[in-house]
Nucleic acid binder design. Structure first.
Length: 748
DNA sequence: TCAAGCATTGCTTGCTAAGT
DNA sequence: ACTTAGCAAGCAATGCTTGA
């Protein structure tokens, strides 16, 4: 890598070299640059075209040029050589001072040059566009493929240029300091100075009386990105982000082959007894060695490695077998750890485990969030204990009243039934439960859940054609089919539905089937993609099949699901439409309590729910067994009116009855319920007269009024004068019906 | 490979029915 | 006159897929 040290340059050679240099560092030059001659003082000459100034050297004058271009001065005078006057940057210039009083300068320069070439060859530093011998040291030039203009719009680009420029200088400086040539200097202060000047090659260094000359010219051009690749991760102030950068650095730059082989030798010598691991160890070692060596070299390396076992060595034929197989295998650190069954600490010690000691940031964040909420809950509970009313609690804690109520319910501490102290609640176990990380691998086939999702895009079309009767008819049909046999339902669905050309009908059927399946809690459906009607669905969570294999998230068609189900796998399927406002008829959401808006119209009553059917069964059984004739009559009437019982009462009754252990217990509970509560429904039940609400469902008028209110509130909020305590107009159209013994009449 | 984006899911909260 | 609670829309955290 030595270069021939020139003792003399002809005049033509001097000018040619000067031209070459200028054209390289400032290509397409049409702007101002600086040309300086240094005798006793610096003469700055701003020039547009430098060529006329290039000439054979003066023996007593040093020549410099700026590495970047300058703006023309507005008033025609020469601008100062200052950063603010720089028009464009395209070159990075790193000056290495090689002077050493103890040794000959040529010797030092040559040594440095050889080192640089070695680093370039090994990919440690980028190949310089040009390297100059300045007579006193070396000058490296990296030229970009395009120039950067330091305008307001380009701030980021300029910052990046500075960062990379400094980074390169730091990199080279660090390398030099590592090397034996400790005398070398690299002045970081002037690095990334935009208005910097450098010695012009083809001229004489008057101090050392040696020639400044180009000694290496690769003609390479770089993008900032390419240079960036040679630098370590950008230093980051944000600690969190810094960790990520470091982690990515580690992860993305897997260990080189030689380092990994070295690690494996260290691991080998760290232990005496490798019983049971000799073969896999040799196998891994050879695979890695083969990644960077020839077959012959790797074989030799493996034999040496095998000889390194202190307990016993693999037999000759075993080694030869590995060599004969001759495969490249680049095992990762974690894999080596796993295969050799190493302890985490050991793996860390040998540099195999990059995750060692790292904090699970997700879990950390999760804990923080859980703690925040628990703190709030604790505060609210404390306030409930100390306050007179929920309004006070809300005011004290600045938590919405409704949320306070919810918290009260969750922790079983409300106004009527207060806890004595917040410590009566086991906060620790609640916290533990909340922050427990769900790990998908510990799911079993039994409790895996697979959720699908339906999305309809042409639903309007379907709606316009189909009326309620049509839907209802199919509902009933599907319902009966499903009840009879799931196998039959599958066949029917596949043959009659999927192969049917009537896409609208099919869409409805799919919807209806999904809803019916869901209502009957029988498990469940589904999704399908039909040409023309775009029903798209995806598996939403990872589940396990009956053999315990993971089913990854993936798109399946309906038939696959059916096949899967017919093998005895269970599904829980959720259905959600993209835009519930377009298809209110089938509007679903993923909340626990699922409803579709117009179920009253579609199903006519609540009889479609599993709860209803259970309650109905229980009640009819109660009527049969009730010993008291009056209550029996009441129960009978309740049974008769069950579809019209209000939601709240319905669920209350349901919950009460469902807690019963046997029929007698159930009757007692009903009686208790009846006697304890002043309930218009139960009064009615007992007396055979009374009042009831007209409908358990919201009427259309109600919904419209509610929607109006909502919009009004939204508007108020957007106008900026609304707050959470806005008074809504009460809805006043609820009316009561009166039962006069013959029928129901409406009140005014 | 990784960030963006989407789906899921738990939680929040306005409105209002219904209970005390 | 107050509390409790259901519903459902929305929000936010989280976790998985996708596509550049």
């Amino acid at each position: 890598m030595d270069y021939t040290y020139l003792t003399e340059l002809s005049a033509e050679e001097q000018i040619q070299m000067q031209k070459n240099f200028v054209n390289t560092i400032i290509p397409n030059e049409k702007r101002l640059m600086f040309y300086c001659e240094l005798k006793n003082r610096m003469n700055q000459v701003g020039v547009v075209n430098i060529e006329p100034f290039l000439r054979p050297h003066y023996t007593d004058v040093d020549h410099y040029v700026s590495i970047n271009r300058f703006h023309y001065s507005e008033n025609g005078t020469m601008p100062k050589r200052e950063a603010k006057n720089v028009a464009a940057m395209q070159t990075m210039y790193i000056d290495l001072d090689c002077s050493n009083h103890n040794r000959r300068i040529e010797h030092e320069i040559n040594n440095t040059y050889c080192l640089l070439q070695e680093w370039i060859h090994n990919g440690l530093i980028p190949e310089a566009t040009m390297i100059n011998d300045t007579g006193k040291g070396l000058a490296l030039f990296y030229v970009l493929d395009s120039s950067i203009h330091p305008t307001d719009k380009n701030v980021k680009m300029v910052n990046l240029y500075d960062f990379i420029y400094r980074g390169l200088a730091k990199l080279i400086k660090a390398k030099l300091e590592e090397s034996d040539l400790r005398v070398l200097g690299l002045d970081m202060k002037v690095v990334a100075e935009h208005s910097r000047i450098c010695r012009l090659p083809g001229t004489l260094n008057t101090k050392s009386k040696t020639w400044c000359q180009i000694i290496y010219d690769s003609n390479k051009r770089y993008s900032l990105k390419e240079l960036r690749a040679y630098l370590p991760a950008r230093e980051c102030v944000n600690k969190e982000k810094k960790k990520i950068y470091e982690f990515n650095e580690l992860r993305n730059h897997s260990k080189s082959d030689s380092i990994r082989l070295q690690q494996m030798r260290e691991i080998q010598s760290s232990r005496y007894d490798w019983n049971g691991y000799h073969q896999i160890f040799c196998f891994m070692y050879y695979g890695r060695a083969r990644s960077c060596m020839s077959h012959k070299e790797a074989a030799e390396a493996l034999r040496w490695f095998n000889a390194g076992f202190r307990d016993r060595q693999l037999e000759h034929y075993q080694i030869e077998e590995i060599i004969r197989n001759d495969r490249v295998r680049r095992y990762s650190g974690s894999r080596i750890k796993q295969e050799l069954n190493l302890e985490a600490e050991d793996a860390h010690r040998f540099g195999l485990d990059i995750n060692y000691g790292w904090v699970d940031r997700d879990a950390e964040r999760k804990q923080i969030n859980v703690d925040k909420k628990l703190e709030r809950d604790k505060m609210v509970i404390q306030a409930i204990i100390e306050s007179e009313s929920m309004n006070d609690v809300a005011a004290r804690t600045n938590v919405p009243k409704r949320t306070c109520e919810d918290i009260a319910r969750r922790y079983g501490c409300n106004m009527r039934n207060k806890l004595k102290s917040v410590d009566d609640i086991d906060w620790d176990s609640i916290r533990e439960e909340k922050i427990r990380v769900k790990h998908r691998n510990i799911k079993t086939a039994e409790n895996s859940t697979i959720v699908t999702n339906i999305e309809l895009t042409e639903r309007m079309k379907a709606r316009s054609i189909v009326n309620e009767t049509y839907v209802k008819e199919y509902f009933e049909f599907i319902e009966s089919e499903l009840k009879q046999s799931s196998t039959r339902a599958i066949e029917w669905f596949q043959n009659d539905v999927l192969d049917n050309d009537d896409t609208v009908k099919r869409t409805l059927l799919i919807n209806a089937l999904a809803i019916v399946a869901d209502l009957y809690d029988s498990s469940k459906f589904l999704k399908y993609q039909i040409d023309g009607i775009d029903i798209v669905a995806t598996w939403a969570t990872t589940g396990f099949d009956s053999n315990g294999f993971i089913i990854n998230k993936k798109k399946y068609d309906l038939k696959t699901i059916f096949n899967y189900k017919s093998k005895g796998n269970e599904f829980i399927v959720d259905i959600q439409y993209k835009d519930r406002n377009i298809v209110p008829d089938f509007s679903y959401r993923t909340n626990e309590n699922r409803y579709f808006d117009k179920r009253y119209e579609i199903a006519a009553n609540r009889m479609e729910t599993i709860r209803y059917r259970q309650l109905e069964e229980v009640l009819s059984r109660a009527v049969d067994t009730c010993p008291n004739s009056a209550v029996k009559a009441g129960l009978d009437h309740l049974l008769f009116r069950l579809p019209y019982v209000t939601n709240k009462r319905f669920y209350g009754l349901y919950n009460t009855i469902m807690e019963a252990e046997d029929w007698d217990d159930m009757v007692n509970r009903i009686l208790e319920n009846v006697s304890k509560k002043k309930n218009p429904e139960i009064d009615d039940l007992i007396k055979f007269t009374g009042h009831r609400k007209t409908s358990p469902f919201k009427t259309r008028a109600q919904r419209v009024a509610q929607q109006k209110n909502r919009e009004r509130l939204k508007q108020i909020r957007e106008n900026g004068d609304g707050n959470k305590t806005v008074q809504y107009e009460p809805i006043k159209h609820m009316k009561f019906d009166i039962y006069d013994g013959n029928g129901w009449t409406k009140t005014a």
